[in-house]
């Protein structure tokens, strides 16, 4: 059964027709040709499909597209300010998290990478909002260290196992980011 929906993806309104069965991930990849979010497992077990929806990191493989009518979705391709067509302007068009991933060699095959990057952006926002994690000790606001980053990034599997570099990259990006939430919202610009 088909439905007409409009999703804003990386700042651009994208009207499309979807099957009620279509996931947000498949709508992006197979209908819109936006292949930055990846399909690694299709069951919420790897994190490669992570996007921001409404500013929060979510799994697009477990999100039915039909529920995203009117939603604001940001993929790794759209993270950087003025990112439309960012693939063409490689040096300038990277978000600080992306820059840190390249600098720290926090990737190998690259397939989990866009999901890692988006997840890191979401995780840093969550951290900035004072959210605790499973490794946060005590009642107050958590401090950002390797253990905190590793736990918060554990929903993104990397089979090449760039984990130690991913943690370093996220910490580096965290120190270079302006204070306060940065994700998702600025992309429109």
């Amino acid at each position: 059964m088909q439905r007409e929906i409009t999703v804003r993806v990386d700042g651009t309104a994208r009207p499309l027709t979807v099957d009620t069965r279509t996931t947000l991930l498949d709508a992006l990849r197979e209908r819109l040709g936006i292949t930055s979010p990846k399909k690694g497992c299709d069951h919420g077990q790897c994190g490669a499909c992570t996007v921001l929806s409404g500013g929060r990191r979510v799994l697009s493989c477990l999100t039915l597209a039909v529920t995203q009518d009117g939603a604001e979705v940001v993929t790794a391709e759209g993270l950087a300010p003025g990112a439309a067509g960012a693939g063409q302007q490689l040096e300038g068009g990277l978000h600080p998290v992306q820059r840190a991933f390249v600098d720290c060699d926090a990737l190998q095959c690259g397939y989990c990478t866009p999901g890692q990057v988006v997840s890191a952006v979401g995780a840093l926002d969550e951290f900035a909002a004072g959210w605790p994690s499973a490794v946060t000790e005590g009642p107050g606001a958590p401090g950002l260290d390797r253990a905190e980053v590793a736990e918060r990034m554990s929903g993104n599997l990397c089979r090449c196992a760039a984990y130690v570099n991913i943690v370093t990259a996220v910490l580096r990006a965290a120190t270079s980011l302006p204070a306060g939430p940065t994700a998702g919202k600025e992309v429109d610009g």
Partner: peptide, 18 residues
């Protein structure tokens, strides 16, 4: 605290958001 800890020990950041 038991409830907060239980939630945080489950799934992943993305799944907990959903």
């Amino acid at each position: 605290p038991v409830l907060s800890q239980a939630l945080l020990s489950g799934a992943s950041g993305q799944l907990r958001n959903m």
